[in-house]
Design a protein around this nucleic acid. Structure first.
Length: 488
RNA sequence: GCCCCUGUGGCGCAGUCUGGUUAGCGCAGUGGACUUUUAAUCCAUUGGUCCUGGGUUCGAAUCCCAGCGGGGGUACCA
């Protein structure tokens, strides 16, 4: 809701200050963190003789007649400004600065008698006035909606918020470096506009290209393109990028989110499990300094190796009953019923087993654990298990009670893949609007030959949530999807 | 989709159950005092269609109905 004109004018800073000329550039030579690091230990009440130039936002102000203190916040944190009227030019204007104004300051690094490391304001310039009042200097923003909509304010007044996004950036960077340097992957970029949605079970967004007069789908996964590249001889590829799914919004779902997918020629899902546990342990060590993580008040150790357990074994653990694909359907339905699964007639044994797993096992899993060997029926892109007919070499990792990734030994046989696609089409015709459609070009790529390949998809947003111990995906997405703000 | 909670000056909150006439408090803003403060302090002060629209009532921020926004849960979601 927009404020009225009068509201803004009454809240505007002093004209004498806001009318100051704004320089075109400014040259900070350090920041608050570096100053603390270098001079944090000097004696109370001493001066260093060293001059520093810093810039940031004025967050607090304490004017005391002929002496003023300020608190400047920059990307390194906060540092005090010490401004005696005899030293600071245009002292009255300096005291008239608004909380939230951007300023640049030069002067001697010193420590006050009370022991606060400070920069003496020997010169200063206004870099940008704030024309809107900043939130409460102590309480900050409590309205979550406003934090998400006005991230440019939230980042200043909610330090944890800024920390999360800096960490997120590090996670992305570390992941890339680890894959490239330690594992010889190359990063590629594949289309976001897909003529056929594929690679996942999800409803897509649609869009339209005018010149081609062609409908496109925003990608729900890069999977099929990445495997085309492995068929093309790029043996280890990964992509970190946005995918789009037309689904509900929740604490774990944002319609656009960031996925890491990677494909490794000649590998199978066991290789991928090792890669996942090593990557997560590496990131935990780099980010948290330990593999012993706390999430939502509960602890877990993500050090490799993680437990591996097949879906049917886990079902047996939880329910005491062994399930398989040849058992009597009525017995399977009875078990499904016991756990509140809504049994639909089109469900085969495989789908029922997955549903039972999700209801009976998953809510109790904390992890880290690899849940392996999903039924073929629910895994249209995974290769048949080498020992268990009707199952696939597929796994999901559950960490902190949440699905973190999905991976498998890739299905490389074009005939089998065609049959799976056709089965998906039947499911679609039966009313499942998230079932896949046939991708003839992808089948053509398989016909040219895809070597044995292991593949992986990780939701990077959820990984960051885990590493930062935050409860909602909106806290790790800078601008989460929201209903557009009403302007009038 | 369903259920629960919520909406009061720029920000953080009280007041709502038990309706009562000038809607409070803190911060920010404005004016003043103050040369070691650090959520500075002290004095004074500006600013509010109490989300919107109906209704009940002598009287509604408060009770009722509807709508809109927000949060959480659940369903859905590999």
């Amino acid at each position: 809701m927009a404020e009225s004109q009068t509201d803004e004018s009454t809240q505007t800073a002093e004209p004498s200050v806001s009318a100051r000329p704004i320089p075109y550039r400014f040259d900070p030579d350090t920041d608050s963190a570096a100053l603390r690091e270098t001079y944090g230990d000097i004696e109370d009440g001493t001066e260093t003789g060293v001059k520093a130039t810093i810039a940031g936002r004025l967050m607090l102000r304490r004017v005391q007649g002929k002496l003023a203190f300020g608190t400047l916040q920059d990307s390194g944190g906060r540092i005090q400004l010490f401004a005696p009227s005899k030293v600071t030019p245009e002292f009255d204007d300096f005291c008239g600065l608004s909380l939230g104004d951007w300023i640049g300051v030069s002067g001697e690094v010193m420590k006050t008698r009370k022991g606060e490391l400070s920069v003496k304001v020997e010169s200063w310039s206004l870099l940008a006035p704030t024309r809107r009042p900043f939130p409460d200097k102590f309480h900050g923003l409590s309205d979550q909606d406003m934090r998400y909509r006005q991230r440019y304010v939230d980042l200043w007044v909610t330090p944890e918020s800024r920390d999360v996004f800096v960490t997120r950036s590090r996670v992305m960077s570390l992941t890339r470096r680890w894959l490239e340097s330690e594992h010889n992957f190359i990063e590629v970029e594949t289309p976001m506009f897909h003529p056929i949605p594929g690679g996942a079970a999800a409803r897509p967004f649609t869009t339209h290209h005018n010149a081609l007069d062609q409908e496109f789908f925003l990608r729900i996964a890069p999977e099929l393109y990445l495997k085309r590249l492995v068929a093309g001889g790029l043996e280890r590829v990964f992509e970190i990028g946005r995918v789009f799914r037309n689904e509900g919004i929740s604490t774990r779902h944002n319609p656009e989110f960031t996925m890491l997918e990677l494909y490794q020629a000649y590998a199978d899902y066991s290789d991928i499990m090792e890669l996942v546990e090593n990557l997560v342990a590496y990131l935990a060590n780099e980010i948290r300094g330990t593999t012993k993580l706390t999430y939502d008040g509960r602890e877990m150790d993500v050090a490799a190796p993680w437990r591996r357990a097949s879906m049917v074994d886990l079902i047996e653990e939880a329910t005491g009953q062994r399930v398989d694909l040849t058992m009597d359907r009525s017995a399977l339905e009875a078990l499904a019923d016991r756990y509140g699964v809504e049994v639909k007639p089109e469900y085969g044994h495989g789908k029922l087993i997955l549903e039972i797993y999700e209801k009976a096992v998953e809510p109790e899993l904390w992890g880290p654990v690899f849940v392996t060997d999903y039924p073929v029926e629910v895994s249209p892109l995974s290769r048949q298990h080498r020992e268990n007919p009707g199952f696939t070499e597929r796994f999901e990792a559950v960490v902190a009670g949440r699905e973190l990734c999905n991976a498998f030994t890739e299905l490389v046989d074009p005939d089998d893949q065609r049959a799976r696609f056709e089965d998906q089409v039947r499911q679609r015709e039966a009313g499942d609007d998230e079932a896949m459609v046939v991708d003839e070009d992808y089948l053509r790529a398989l016909e040219y030959g895809l070597p044995p390949t292991g593949g992986l998809g990780i939701g990077m947003d959820r990984l960051v949530m885990l590493l930062c111990d935050v409860p909602t995906i909106r806290d790790v997405v800078l601008f989460p999807t929201l209903r557009p703000e009403q302007t009038d």
